[in-house]
Write a protein that binds this DNA or RNA. Structure first.
Length: 478
RNA sequence: GCCCCCAUCGUCCAGCGGCCUAGGACGCCUGCCUUUCACGCAGGUAACACGGGUUCGAAUCCCGUUGGGGGUGCCA
């Protein structure tokens, strides 16, 4: 959008315009996804528009693959935008002009000090760390190692009426003369922020609380540049880890795509994210996005940080999985059981899709995350099962008359009709004869563990030889 | 250090001066259902950080303390 369009659009400010403005850091962070979601919810619930703007003023962030890493996950989540993506790097000339304007009208000045030099000066002068306007009024000319700093007012205050937090006040005296143009000539995000939000007629800036402290600086620039109506601000509570620290790339699992790749459904992820910092008035947590849009109110967003709890996510995801039509579940399961780049516990050639499809409805009832699927079906596609240690101890070592039970089952299985009903009947008959529980030992011998899907339908699809071999092996280990 | 923000069950959310002997969800525990597990169902566990005000009345308003977090870059 050209700058000249600014006046027109702001005159026509009929609806809310929000923007999601991530820095392209290589992948979409769940925290960023949450910010995007809340912007989107606000736009959709107010009939407004959402703009996607990539904040790549730092040259190091300007890589095409980084853009994809933002756009794709958003699309997957169903978070759509009405305009953009715009790139701050492509709007650089406007930011440069703004900086020039500020220098010209005395709101900014050149400074040739490095950070270290400025710190040394502060230490010498016995002042607290920070930049203390050393280069103000020194008549320093622009040069290769010069930055441009904004001259913050010596007194007065900046008041922000945050839609979530209420009034937040900053004393101008606490704000240092911050850099608005680097020595390589590139403007920093603070300038880009003010100029772009004005040009794009943004009415509401909704973002993480970690940016709250930068807001007064942008406000000051806004005024010094004589821009139009300021947007409203709303600072969202941060998403934190178990230690209550801001979710970080280094310590925590925060890649949205990684979560999706593990088999969290996009809708479940969105639902969960919406519940962090906000809750529906009627306390019904799991619900379609349309209802969330309808119920969403920015004023109802919390102030306190929220723990990104994957245990709760698992539960929500499980609900979404169970609500899926079986056919959808089966096709969505494919990447987790068969895709070439998937690690599965069986030889790829051994996998039989028709077997999985046959018992998929039972698996669907039991998984919370798609990646758990192989745990329920591995015994169907491997030659030999490995025994779950606890299950073996409990059912086989501590169980009553297990050798006799297995002997009985082996004998009957040798010539029983190979149908689920007959197999089940045979095992129960052995148990009845001996007055012992026969189902669990059979399960452990055949599947390797004591918990899982109802098994006889599935077993009937295995070869008699395979099943007998497993029973005999288990018997021999007792 | 300085600036800013925050504070209800372990966790997420409800509560916006009386409806609160604080509600829902996840987790955990118990029971029912079930020839395993899970689902489902019925129960249970567990919180207003502390201290002062204001008020007839405070989880809700104000102040302070404590605790937690964020920022403090020529990153955004």
């Amino acid at each position: 959008m050209a700058r000249s369009a600014r006046h027109l659009t702001s005159l026509l400010r009929v609806s809310t315009r929000v923007r999601f403005a991530p820095a392209p850091t290589g992948f979409l962070h769940v925290g960023s996804a949450r910010s995007a979601l809340f912007n989107w919810l606000y736009a959709r619930s107010t009939g407004g528009e959402m703009i996607l703007r990539i904040e790549d003023t730092d040259a190091a962030l300007r890589k095409p693959e980084f853009i994809d890493a933002i756009v794709k996950p958003l699309q997957t989540l169903g978070i759509t935008w009405d305009e953009g993506p715009y790139y701050q790097s492509q709007r650089k000339q406007f930011h440069v002009e703004a900086v020039e304007q500020l220098v010209e009208n005395g709101h900014a000045y050149f400074c040739n000090l490095t950070r270290d030099e400025a710190d040394a000066l502060a230490a010498e002068a016995g002042l607290p760390a920070g930049y203390h306007g050393w280069s103000r009024d020194k008549g320093i000319e622009d040069g290769p190692d010069c930055v441009v700093r904004f001259r913050t007012p010596d007194e007065g205050e900046v008041v922000i009426n945050d839609l979530i937090r209420g009034e937040v006040r900053f004393q101008c005296s606490e704000l240092e003369d911050f850099v608005i143009r680097r020595s390589d000539g590139s403007p920093t995000f603070l300038v880009a922020n003010a100029v772009d939000d004005a040009d794009m007629s943004i009415t509401h800036v909704i973002r993480g609380e970690d940016l709250l402290n930068t807001t007064p600086k942008v406000m000051l620039l806004w005024e010094a540049l004589d821009l139009d109506d300021k947007p409203e601000y709303a600072h969202l509570p941060l998403l934190v880890n178990e230690q209550r620290k801001k979710l970080s790339k280094r310590r925590d699992d925060v890649s949205l795509m990684d979560f999706l790749a593990q088999g969290y459904l996009p809708q479940a992820m969105v639902n969960h994210l919406a519940l962090l910092g906000w809750g529906p008035p009627d306390e019904k947590e799991i619900r379609p996005i349309e209802e969330i849009i309808e119920l969403f109110k920015l004023e109802n967003v919390n102030k306190g940080s929220a723990f990104f709890d994957t245990v709760k996510l698992d539960h929500i995801n499980g609900e979404y999985i169970r609500a899926l039509p079986v056919d959808d579940f089966v096709s969505m399961a494919e990447p987790f059981v068969y895709a070439v780049d998937t690690e599965v516990p069986w030889e790829r050639e051994q996998y039989r899709p028709e077997v999985f499809a046959f018992i998929a409805h039972e698996v669907q009832q039991r998984v919370n995350v798609m990646r758990e699927i192989p745990n329920f079906i591995d015994w169907l596609f491997v030659d030999e099962v490995s025994y779950n240690e606890r299950a073996w101890k409990k059912a086989m070592e501590k169980g009553k008359q297990v050798p006799e039970i297995l002997d009985g089952i082996i004998e009957r299985f040798t010539d029983v009709d190979w149908t689920a009903e007959a197999l089940n009947g045979a095992v129960s008959a052995v148990g009845d004869e001996l007055g012992a529980r026969s189902q669990v030992p059979a399960r452990v011998a055949i599947t390797g563990t004591n918990a899982g899907i109802p098994m006889w339908d599935a077993v009937s699809m295995l070869d008699r030889d395979v099943v007998l071999r497993r029973l005999r092996k288990a018997r021999s280990l007792l």
